[in-house]
Write a protein that binds this DNA or RNA. Structure first.
Length: 568
RNA sequence: CGGGAUGUAGCGCAGCUUGGUAGCGUACCUGUCUUGGGAACAGGUGGUCGCAGGUUCAAAUCCUGUCAUCCCGACCA
């Protein structure tokens, strides 16, 4: 590709809309242009990178035996009503009506459609297992889109769906995809981690997330410092590692805590550690209210609450609901005299003589004890894991890192096949629902997270596998015949070698060309100038390290190939 | 949806307090000159000041409403 005939509108300054590094650099490098909140044009340079990700994904999926198809982005409401998600999915589902007032939605995912396809054509166990996938544009009307391609509303996704005749087969399909995903992220040249995850609204029985590790990630990954356990913060199990103190139970007493609502305020006011306070959160689990108690220095985990109750929705209660449940105002809730059941986290169950809200305005109670002052309906794990907590597998210590979720695999079971009446006949002629799995990769998010993980103050440092061009040929004086002739020759050879060169044939000064090449992150640069040419040499520079070497003209293409191989 | 902020040229910003000819940098066009790290000089193109009302002789500026965008939170395969 010749730079002068391509379209790379680089920016000198960062548009005010960008905050995170991948967003800033994608805008500056001329890869994307915003059209509306969370909706982007993919400019030519950005599109090349996206296609690279797609190619890797496609190759690995095909190798794993999956078959590509393409489903529509607009889907009829009936299918969603069949699965029950038309009501369940919420506002994230963009609902639209056609000219006949028929209901449709813009697909945020395709479980319903693929289930419809498979039930129409596959009716025998002899045709199973099968794994179908597509790479396609999705739309999710996110509450708050942000960070450019990282959390867009419209984005590109690879979604695959497996259909098996039994549970054992479904597990094999799942494991097959797990391995394929590892190969995909390795082939992209990214540092990643596979973690246990919550199944969320897609539903199903178990799930793993693939996280690209980056400091700017939105997700927290808990992993063990001594074994291979790692999990999403939502999922990471907190073990009951506490022993209850044998201290004598003291009589409880009410104390005034004016203006002290939060644990921190109460702890400061009463001059006691946060860990000796137990906070009582009122949550609405589907239609009923319950109290959840966690230690003052812990965070309640809504996903765990939701799973414990097998609930559809879990939300923090409104001030009115809190008053209804406790008889007191928000900020001073406690378990004593509560009108709804109270559940305790393991850590609270081990506490004695602790401080809780008194369900009275600006009052807390000291030396409260369960068993004496109130009873737990049950005790379980309801909190977020913290660094330093005991590993649930080996007893080592948890550490916390940040990551970006780029892939998610689920074993769905019969959730959709049963709801949508998608069955096959087994070898005994009995009707059985398909056992399904679904597997997603955020293609556009992979591109963004590659930048989060690989950049410096000058710009992007693409992993070779995702780089839009592998090498940039930079003639410094395009009007000098000798320089240009050599540049053209080198460009042609590199092109024939399949090294995807970009020839910067613009009549610009050296600084402009260098700065742009570094900004857009091309792994290797060949610089052709009069001075080095007099010695029969050109310069070869590696973007990542900044190291430059002089190489004889006739050897330079070979050297470039070597370097690219080393970088891959 | 709650809290905070911002909308003036492609991009980055000033002007608004105290109403009176729309400004700077960069980018872009023309020319001269230059060419190994975002050159210099000269001349140019480009803006219904987000939108709609209102106040006023006069509104980018004051008032009301509205829309859009971003950040924090809640939420989220």
């Amino acid at each position: 590709m010749r730079y002068s005939r391509f379209f790379i509108p680089t920016l000198r300054e960062v548009p005010a809309e960008a905050e995170v590094v991948s967003h800033k650099l994608m805008l500056r490098a001329g890869m994307i242009k915003k059209l509306a909140s969370g909706v982007y044009n993919y400019l030519p340079l950005g599109l090349i990178v996206i296609r690279k990700v797609e190619d890797i994904v496609r190759r690995c999926m095909n190798e794993a035996g999956a078959i590509e198809l393409l489903m529509p982005s607009v889907q009829p409401a009936e299918l969603w009503k069949e699965s029950g998600r038309w009501n369940y999915y919420g506002k994230e589902l963009l609902r639209i009506k056609d000219r006949h007032d028929r209901e449709f939605c813009y697909g945020p995912t395709h479980e319903e459609v693929i289930t419809d396809v498979v039930r129409s054509f596959i009716s025998s166990y002899k045709n199973l297992p099968i794994n179908l996938y597509q790479i396609q544009t999705k739309f999710r009307d996110e509450v708050r889109p942000r960070f450019g391609l990282m959390r867009g509303r419209e984005f590109m996704m690879k979604d695959a769906y497996s259909f098996d005749m039994d549970d054992a087969g479904a597990n094999i399909s799942y494991e097959n995809m797990r391995q394929a995903y590892c190969r995909i992220f390795e082939a992209c040249g990214l540092k990643y981690k596979v973690v246990d995850a919550d199944t969320g609204s897609i539903g199903g029985s178990f799930s793993h997330e693939f996280m690209v590790l980056a400091d700017t990630g939105e997700d927290f990954v808990i992993s063990c410092d001594s074994c291979d356990y790692s999990a999403n913060l939502e999922k990471a199990v907190c073990v009951d590692e506490y022993t209850k103190s044998a201290d004598e139970l003291k009589p409880s007493e009410d104390v005034a805590t004016p203006k002290a609502k939060t644990v921190e305020e109460v702890a400061n006011f009463l001059n006691i550690p946060a860990a000796s306070i137990a906070k009582t959160m009122i949550v609405r689990v589907d239609d009923k209210l319950v109290g959840i108690m966690v230690r003052g220095d812990h965070e309640m985990n809504m996903a765990k609450v939701k799973n414990y109750f097998s609930a559809t929705t879990v939300e923090l209660a409104s001030p009115e609901e809190i008053e209804e449940a406790t008889g007191g105002p928000m900020g001073f809730s406690g378990p004593v005299g509560m009108k709804v059941p109270v559940y305790g986290d393991f850590a609270v169950a081990a506490m004695v003589n602790y401080c809780v809200g008194a369900n009275l305005k600006e009052t807390h109670t000291l030396n409260v004890n369960h068993g004496r002052d109130f009873e737990f309906a049950d005790v379980d794990d309801f909190r977020n894991a913290n660094p330093g907590d005991k590993c649930c597998k080996c007893g080592g210590k948890y550490v916390i890192t940040k990551g970006i979720e780029v892939g998610h695999i689920f074993k769905l079971g019969t959730k959709y096949s049963a709801a949508m009446n998608a069955n096959f006949l087994d070898s005994e002629g009995k009707r059985q629902p398909f056992i399904m799995g679904c597997y997603g990769i955020g293609v556009t998010r992979v591109a963004a997270s590659a930048i989060e993980q690989n950049h410096d103050e000058k710009g992007i440092v693409w992993p070779v596998q995702l780089a839009p061009f592998k090498v940039c040929v930079v003639p410094l004086a395009v009007k000098d015949e000798d320089v240009m002739k050599n540049a053209e020759t080198i460009y042609k050879i590199l092109n024939d070698m399949g090294l995807e060169p970009l020839l910067d044939d613009r009549d610009e000064r050296a600084g402009v060309k260098f700065t742009d090449a570094e900004l857009i992150g091309i792994p290797v640069r060949v610089t052709i100038g009069k001075k080095t040419l007099e010695k029969g040499c050109v310069e070869v520079t590696v973007r990542k390290t900044g190291t430059t070497e002089e190489v004889p003209v006739e050897k330079c293409t070979e050297r470039v190939a070597e370097l690219i191989k080393e970088l891959s």
